[in-house]
Simulated assay, not measured.
Amino acid sequence: MLHRRMQRVRVITLVFTALTAVYLYAFPAATLPYLALVFGHFAAGLLLAGLLIHVLIRTSSPGWIVTAVGAALGIVLAFTGASRPFEWLLYTHIGISVLGVVLLLAAGRRRPLITFGALSTAVLVLSASAWSLRELRWRDAYRIRNPDMPPEAQAYEGDGVNGPFFPSSSQTSHGGKIPSRFFMESQACQRCHPDIYEQWSSSAHRFSSFNNQWYRKSIEYMQDVVGVRPSKWCAGCHDPALLFSGMFDTPVRELIDKPEAHAGLGCVMCHSIAAVKSTMGQGDYTLEYPALAELAASPNKLVQAVHDFLVHVNPEPHRRTFLKPFVRSQTADFCSTCHKVHLDTHVNNYRWIRGFNDYDNWQASGVSGFGARSFYYPPKP
């Protein structure tokens, strides 16, 4: 009786781990249900590994032996994590576990070899479909594409003249404001990225706001001459903590002692950009406020530990939240959103004028691979 119950629990646990594995691989997402499934998959894997110890003592079934190896690799992954250096281990764990399930399903059939072949074919089709859902759809959804035509006038850029951030072209995915603290918690990133945090702490991005005296005096003068609203044109790329929280509606002289005025461009500013709408620059991006943003930056040690463990064993949701494909595949286009600017009537009360333009200068140079001079450069390695 006990043996049958153990066998039933083992089969149910195996089915649960298999089904959750398919879902976790094909549909990574930074949501509470998904993260709960990550925990569930890990717990079920531990339970299955424990149940298999008894089985391995009494059986020589290839299916259970291979499945046990897959479970053991899963436990190893809990210690190594599934980040890029250990991605091979993740796929080894998946491959061996799948092989174990196929062997178990084929065992005891009248024609085990034919069954094994049919199941293997089905697994290959399912794997290709899961990979396509995971990778191709994701990459295609986050590409930087220029519109067929630019806006007719500055009044049509971003959210338009009635938008909360105009004349900056910046937008938020939900159409509303974002709490200022979201842009001021770069120290939370330091736990896992200490080297990058150290580089950022002395970078130009860190000192892009009113902790830069040249910029501060420029904005103070601009607001004295043309008022507060036109200066939002600058804030989209210099003062996210002030602009997106609504604080930039106040003259800068009244904000200068607030920590938001000295936040600069924190880690999440660039890494939360969900879309770059064109390479026309001028802050032409859409910012996304992640649903679980407060988990990573929580001061609660238990919450931090849970968050860090989940990122450790399954970093894909975190990666998809803060590292959209265009950051790597279209890096220059991504940077163009703030490294190319223009002034227009709502800023200077005059006409369209080109401001500084790093992006077009880079594109026309030989090193970009697009300019005529690129012909004389050596092939890229």
Rank of each mutant, 00 (worst) to 15 (best):
Q282W: 11
G45L: 03
A49G: 05
L323G: 10
T17F: 00
A235R: 01
A261P: 03
D249T: 04
D308E: 11
S298T: 01
N212E: 03
I114W: 10
L51M: 06
R145A: 15
I144K: 14
Y376F: 15
G63P: 11
T80Y: 10
H93C: 03
P240I: 03
G281C: 09
P194I: 00
A118S: 06
L243S: 06
S83A: 08
S132N: 13
A128G: 14
H193K: 09
N212G: 02
T172S: 11
G355M: 03
S218Y: 05
E157M: 06
H339R: 00
F309A: 12
A235L: 07
Y285W: 09
N348W: 05
A128Q: 12
E152I: 10
N357T: 08
I53H: 12
G227N: 12
E152Q: 10
H339N: 08
N212Q: 02
R134T: 07
S298H: 04
E254V: 01
L89M: 07
L32D: 07
K301N: 06
S278V: 04
W88D: 12
W64G: 04
H193P: 14
V55F: 07
Y156N: 11
D224W: 03
G266T: 04
V22T: 11
S97H: 05
A305I: 05
V226S: 09
Y197G: 13
L302P: 00
R109Y: 14
W362C: 15
S120L: 15
P379N: 06
G45D: 02
I96H: 06
S374D: 10
F244N: 04
A122L: 15
N348S: 04
M149F: 12
V367T: 12
A118D: 03
N146V: 10
V76F: 08
G236T: 07
L52Q: 00
S173M: 15
L119M: 10
G355T: 05
I144N: 09
F183H: 05
H174W: 07
F116T: 09
R139M: 13
T92F: 13
G70S: 02
Q187D: 13
L124I: 09
H346E: 01
H238C: 00
G100E: 02
W64F: 04
L242E: 04
L37Y: 09
